[in-house]
Design a protein around this nucleic acid. Structure first.
Length: 198
DNA sequence: CGGGAGATGGGCT
DNA sequence: GCCCATCTCCCGA
């Protein structure tokens, strides 16, 4: 159905840190009855059930984090802070809970639709999708998208331009209290749509 | 501008 | 009852 070069499910069969780097530059696309929105992934974070207390799956499998334990290439969407959703891609293999949080995209398609969904208070294009909650609102990703197979759904990820390793920056992850020792946040250097330039 | 606090509700100890 | 993988507003500089 999608005309783009959709990533095959085999792409997601790798550890979350590797996947987080490789997802930079790829296109996230969501087709809805209202229209299509898409953007280039410019900022990601990796989470793993192993040695990573910040991961939702660190303790055990629950109803909420169940998708993370399932097959790779699925969407793990969760509700946070009473108002927002965050979108992750499940990686590695079935039975191993790892995922990549998409923290920011550079808007490509459906800019008007994104603005409408985000509300009139958003003044600049740079504030449309520069955060995990913001991009979910702009692209209408929520509870209904949890568990979707990203290769054969209205929600999918397609090829983009490859990013030079030299312009991939890494840092501590944002908004967590545990697991601060890990440099598992990745973003494209100098890209103005990144949530935090450092 | 940068920092801090409040909103808000589901999940888990 | 406390803790959040957040966002926006409002304040002071």
């Amino acid at each position: 159905m999608p005309p783009d070069l959709v990533l095959p499910l085999s792409f997601y069969e790798k550890d979350a840190v590797t996947a987080a780097r490789l997802l930079l530059g790829k296109h996230l696309v969501h087709v809805t009855p209202e229209g299509t929105t898409s953007g280039v992934i410019v900022e990601t974070e990796a989470y793993s059930e192993f040695d990573d207390p910040a991961c939702h799956a660190f303790r055990k499998k629950t109803k909420r984090n169940a998708v993370m334990f399932g097959p790779p290439g699925r969407a793990y969407v969760y509700f946070i802070y009473g108002n927002y959703y965050c979108f992750n891609v499940v990686t590695n293999r079935e039975g191993v809970a790892e995922a990549v949080l998409v923290r920011a995209v550079e808007p490509v398609k459906g800019l008007g639709l994104m603005k409408r969904r985000r509300g009139s208070s958003v003044d600049s294009i740079y504030n449309l999708t520069n955060g995990p909650g913001k991009l979910c609102m702009a692209m209408n990703i929520g509870r209904d998208e949890n568990g979707l197979i990203l290769a054969d759904s209205p929600l999918y990820i397609a090829e983009g331009q490859s990013i030079d390793e030299k312009i991939i920056c890494e840092s501590r992850r944002i908004g967590i209290s545990r697991g601060q020792d890990k440099l598992w946040r990745f973003f494209i250097q100098g890209n103005p749509f990144v949530s935090r330039p450092r």
